[in-house]
């Protein structure tokens, strides 16, 4: 029978907290950057300009069709050789996470906008609104409601995806758990605490997401 002993873990509590902090920073940082990228890519795809649309589409497919782990390794180890400058592992991590999630966000935004009936844009146009006014006042508010559940879902996945940055030695929660394990030889305790910390953050978030989703459904 295995004898659990968390007492050795508490000595390294600071490491776990620091790791968790970095995980949160990478998650929210990449979500913010990812939203900006997603908006830009979505706009490019809906612009009607063949060349913009094609570039945006290519970017999306590359990042959606390769594993995040592969992207992290490529950006950290391969990309610097290509451009001849070394990239800090934290920069590579943030860049890759943002580009990865941005590709998915763009698709969520695009799907939300395209799901709005064409008649809405026509009705807005018929009272003299410009394309931009129709987008901002009529299409976006409706599309926002529809894309929110998918957006939250993708963001929850993003939080978990940050654990992969440990492979390029970014000291996130997963990395720190490995460090603690190396110090204590207590993998069960180290990795259980890590898992518990992920749950502690994400469970409340998914509950809030469900609640928002229910609220939106009621108001429809």
């Amino acid at each position: 029978m295995y004898r659990w002993d968390f007492s050795v873990i508490w000595q390294y509590w600071d490491l776990f907290m620091y790791g968790l902090w970095l995980t949160v920073v990478y998650t929210f940082g990449s979500i913010v950057l990812g939203v900006l990228i997603g908006l830009l890519v979505c706009a490019a795809r809906l612009s009607g300009w063949m060349i913009f649309s094609l570039i945006a589409r290519t970017y999306q497919e590359i990042f959606r069709c390769t594993p995040l782990l592969v992207q992290l390794l490529w950006f950290y180890y391969a990309f610097p050789l290509l451009v001849g400058i070394s990239i800090d592992n934290r920069v590579a991590a943030m860049l890759t996470l943002s580009l990865y999630v941005g590709a998915f966000y763009a698709e969520i935004f695009r799907g939300g906008i395209l799901s709005i009936d064409r008649g809405q844009r026509e009705a807005a146009a018929a009272i003299g609104m410009s394309n931009w006014q129709a987008m901002r006042r009529i299409v976006m508010p409706q599309a926002f409601k529809r894309m929110l559940p998918a957006f939250i879902n993708q963001s929850v996945i993003q939080f978990k995806n940050t654990s992969l940055v440990s492979v390029i030695s970014v000291a996130d929660l997963a990395y720190m758990a490995a460090v603690v394990n190396g110090q204590t030889y207590r993998p069960l305790e180290s990795y259980t605490v890590m898992a518990a910390l992920y749950i502690a953050v994400l469970f409340p978030l998914t509950q809030i997401a469900d609640w928002i989703e229910r609220r939106l459904r009621v108001s429809d």
Binding site: D117, Q120, E122, A123, A124, A126, I138, P141
Partner: peptide, 11 residues
């Protein structure tokens, strides 16, 4: 213009 399917703004 008035449309067949009304196209009122639901929000």
């Amino acid at each position: 213009m008035v449309f067949q399917h009304f196209n009122l703004f639901p929000h």
